[in-house]
Structure formats: C-alpha cells, structure tokens
Amino acid sequence: MTSNFQGFPKDFLRFYAELIENNNREWFNANKQRYKDVVVYPMCDFIEAMAPRLEAIAPMFIADPRPNGGSMFRIYRDVRFSRDPKPYKEHAACQFRHQAGRDAHAPGYYVHLALDGVRFGGGIYLPPAPVLAKIRHAIDERGKEWKGIKADPDFRATFHEGIRGDGLKRAPKNFSIDHPEIEDLRRKTLFVMKPLDDINRITRPDFVDEVEDAFHKATPFMRFLTNAVELPF
C-alpha cells in the first residue's frame, strides 16, 4: 500500500519534549505552525494510511484524516474542572470510532503517542450505564467466547497485560462476587493496548504496519464489544 506517511518526523518528539517544559500559551502560539507541520499533518497522513487497512479489518470503523473534526484528538485541554492548569495535552492521539458513535464512549481503535510511552489497541471508554450493562450481560451470557478471546495465543502475545480498565470495588448489581469473570464484570472501561518498546519506531514508515497488526489481533475483542452493544461489526 502506498501513502504519504513516511513515519512521524523526529521533530515530533522534540516538539513534545519542549512542550512539556513550556506548557503555556505564549510558547505554543510561537510554535503553532511547527505543531501543524510536525504533529498535525503527519498524523493526518498516518490516519489516511490506516484508512484502507482499517476498512479491511473492521469496515464499520472510521479513519477520518481531517485535521479538525476527524480521528485526531485536539491538543487543547479542557481545564474548566481540572486542578491541572496546563492548557495543552502532552501527547498526540487518534481514535477510529464506530460509525454509529459520535463521541469517545463508542467502541474504537486507539493510538497514543507520548514521550513516556507509545501504545495502540482498542476498547470502549466509560460507556453510559445502559451500554455498560449490555457488555456485562454479554460477558455473562457468552462466557465461553469471552474466555476464548482472552486465551488466544496471538491475543496474549500482543497484549501482555490483557484486558484492562478501572472498575468497581464491589460486584455490579445482579452479579455475584464469585462470578468467574468478576474482574472484567466490575470494569467501567475495557481496553487492550500494545506498548511500543522503542518510541523512536514511530519515525519509521513501517510504524503503520505495527499498528495494523495490533488492530488485527484486537479484532475478536472489538467484535465482541461492538456486538454486545448491539452494533454491527
């Protein structure tokens, strides 16, 4: 497959190293064009390169390369209810959401790029209570399938930490604390992530191949979540 993506530029990493030291509007405004050149446009190229690959893996999920309103998350932080006054996110990220989802609470594939770690995979983030209830009931009713996904050798080799996500301290309503899948039933977020052992690999053209492979390995998990919330995969 051909695309404009040739890896993220090395200045991508330098930009975020400097942003961490200068997370203020004055510095960012002085480096805004640089941000577009080394972060936004390369991310758009990456998303565009992922589009046909994602369509082959999960055709109901969208890779939108637009710099605004597409798959890429904005750099601006919402500080209205935060104790952290920093105005800018110190990482870049994109999410390929299900076409039925209008926000980050729908199932999606995800890529996170930061100096303290690069990771990619998929899941669902803090779904509303009725949606989460559907996922819990699917895990309960289709326990054999759920266990099979987690036990698959390719899945385990790719996602060493398994299924993750913050959860309740107690069993959710209508489920026993002794349920064999209680750890996952208590989760309020469910995701799998593959960490990259060397962040400099994002500067290589084949980074897109690594992400594609992880998305492929995450697909049985993503299919389960998507079908559980009554959406087509």
Rank of each mutant, 00 (worst) to 15 (best):
Leu54Val: 11
Glu18Tyr: 08
Ala49Phe: 04
Phe8Val: 02
Cys94Glu: 08
Pro59Cys: 01
Ile47His: 02
Met43Lys: 02
Ala49His: 03
Glu26Gln: 14
Pro220Tyr: 01
Glu161Thr: 11
Phe5Leu: 09
Arg187Thr: 02
Met60Tyr: 12
Asn68Cys: 11
Pro52Ile: 10
Lys10Gly: 15
Phe207Pro: 00
Val192Ala: 02
Leu113Gly: 00
Asp178Lys: 08
Gly69Arg: 01
Ile163Val: 15
Ile163Arg: 00
Phe73His: 04
Ser82Tyr: 03
His160Phe: 09
Tyr110Cys: 04
Ile62Thr: 08
Phe159Pro: 01
Gly101Tyr: 01
Asp140Phe: 06
Phe159His: 04
Leu113Phe: 06
Lys86Met: 03
Ala228Leu: 05
Arg156Lys: 15
Pro52Ser: 10
Lys173Trp: 09
Arg170Met: 11
Tyr41Cys: 06
Thr189Ala: 01
Val192Lys: 05
Thr158Met: 15
Leu231Pro: 06
Gly121Leu: 01
Lys134Leu: 15
Tyr125Glu: 12
Gly7Lys: 07
Ala93Ser: 14
Arg97Pro: 07
Asn174Phe: 11
Lys169Val: 00
Pro205Trp: 11
Lys134Ala: 12
Thr2Gln: 13
Val111Asp: 09
Ala129Cys: 05
Lys147Asp: 14
Ala17Gln: 15
Asp166Gly: 11
Asn174Trp: 10
Arg136Val: 06
Trp27Glu: 02
Gly121Asn: 00
Arg34His: 10
Phe5Asn: 09
Val211Gln: 00
Arg102Tyr: 13
Met222Ser: 04
Leu190Glu: 03
Arg156Glu: 13
Asn68Trp: 08
Ala92Thr: 06
Asp37Asn: 14
Lys150Pro: 02
Arg187Asn: 03
Ala151Tyr: 08
Ile177Cys: 09
Asp198Asn: 14
Glu230Asn: 13
Gly148Lys: 14
Thr226Glu: 04
Asp116His: 13
Asp152Trp: 04
Phe224Gln: 02
Asn24Gln: 14
Asn4Thr: 13
Ser82Phe: 01
Glu181Gln: 14
Ala114Cys: 07
Glu141Pro: 05
Phe191Val: 00
Asp213Leu: 12
His91Lys: 08
Val192Met: 01
Glu21Gln: 15
Ala171Val: 11
Glu212Ala: 13
Arg53Gln: 12
Gly101Arg: 06
Glu161Cys: 08
Lys144Ser: 13
Asn174Glu: 15
Gly148Asn: 14
Asp78Gly: 05
Asp140Pro: 03
Glu90His: 08
Thr203Glu: 10
Phe221Trp: 00
Arg164Phe: 03
Asp116Ser: 12
Asp103Ser: 13
Met222Leu: 08
Gly162Tyr: 05
Gly7Ala: 08
Pro153Cys: 05
Asn4Ile: 10
Glu230Cys: 10
Leu113Tyr: 07
Pro42Thr: 03
Ile62Ser: 05
Met222Lys: 02
Arg74Trp: 07
Pro128Gln: 13
Lys32Val: 03
Phe224Thr: 07
Gln99Met: 11
Gly165Pro: 04
Ala228Val: 04
Asn23Pro: 09
Phe28Trp: 10
Glu210Tyr: 05
Ala93Cys: 11
Arg119Met: 15
Leu185Val: 00
Val111Pro: 04
Ala58Ser: 09
Asp184Leu: 07
Ala93Phe: 05
Ala58Arg: 02
Ile62Cys: 04
Arg102Val: 12
